[in-house]
Amino acid sequence: MVLLQEKVSDFYNAVKERRTYYSINNEIILTNEELEELINLSVLHAPSAFNSQGDRVVLLVGEQHTKLWDITIETLSERLPADRFATTEAKLNGFKNGYGTVLFFEDLDVSNELQEKFPTYKDNIPSWFQQNSGILQYIVWTGLEQAGYGASVQHYNPLIDEKVRKEWNIPTSWNLLAQMPFGKPIAPPKEKQYQSLDHRVKVFK
């Protein structure tokens, strides 16, 4: 570990420090222009299968961020019984209290084009696009945390998809994959339990 720390300490410190934060507020840490730069750098340099660059991102801040979680609260209130909704509403309001949300999409036009171009890999390409997005989400998440924000990844799609598409005029080919609310942490993350690496990693020498 000493050799590793000497070579890539900053990177792996960022990896270790990234956590899931649910208790956040809307205090400004980065300007909107700086947030846009963080998103742009992440999208530009995230790897993708065949360099397809099919990831799409929407950054919502201020009233637009609030509107997303109002939409989510309204949508789930229509689907959940009242006795179950109170806990969910409290959780959603926690996300709403944050500063912004990053929406992650995949462009199905790009995916479909690749499937036609590479029929041998047709069945694999959709899962590769999911992996592409996962990498991008991790880059953005870690970048936000390094800037001082706390974030989490949520999946209220496909329940909110149509309302999101209508509200922000999202192209029909953009398929919503995840939502990342973020804000300044106001409480530490939950303690994380680690499983033994003995049955998670195999090394052959």
Score class of each variant (00 low, 15 high):
6 E>C: 02
8 V>E: 15
12 Y>P: 05
17 E>S: 11
22 Y>S: 15
23 S>W: 07
24 I>Q: 05
26 N>K: 06
30 L>W: 05
31 T>S: 15
36 E>W: 01
41 L>Y: 06
43 V>W: 02
45 H>Q: 11
45 H>R: 14
46 A>P: 06
47 P>K: 07
50 F>Q: 03
50 F>A: 04
50 F>K: 09
53 Q>E: 12
53 Q>C: 01
54 G>E: 06
57 V>Y: 04
58 V>G: 09
59 L>R: 09
60 L>H: 05
63 E>V: 13
65 H>A: 07
65 H>M: 09
66 T>A: 07
69 W>T: 03
70 D>K: 06
70 D>A: 00
74 E>F: 04
76 L>Y: 14
83 D>F: 10
87 T>W: 05
87 T>C: 00
89 E>N: 13
94 G>K: 03
95 F>H: 11
95 F>L: 01
98 G>H: 00
103 L>M: 13
111 S>H: 03
111 S>Y: 01
112 N>F: 10
115 Q>C: 05
123 D>S: 13
125 I>W: 01
127 S>C: 02
128 W>E: 00
130 Q>A: 12
136 L>V: 09
136 L>Y: 07
138 Y>G: 14
138 Y>D: 14
141 W>V: 00
148 G>E: 08
149 Y>D: 02
154 Q>F: 08
154 Q>H: 10
155 H>C: 04
156 Y>G: 04
157 N>K: 10
159 L>E: 15
161 D>Q: 12
164 V>R: 03
168 W>C: 07
169 N>D: 15
169 N>R: 08
172 T>V: 08
175 N>H: 11
176 L>S: 02
177 L>E: 11
183 G>C: 05
187 A>Y: 08
194 Y>Q: 11
194 Y>P: 03
195 Q>P: 08
196 S>I: 00
197 L>Q: 11
198 D>W: 01
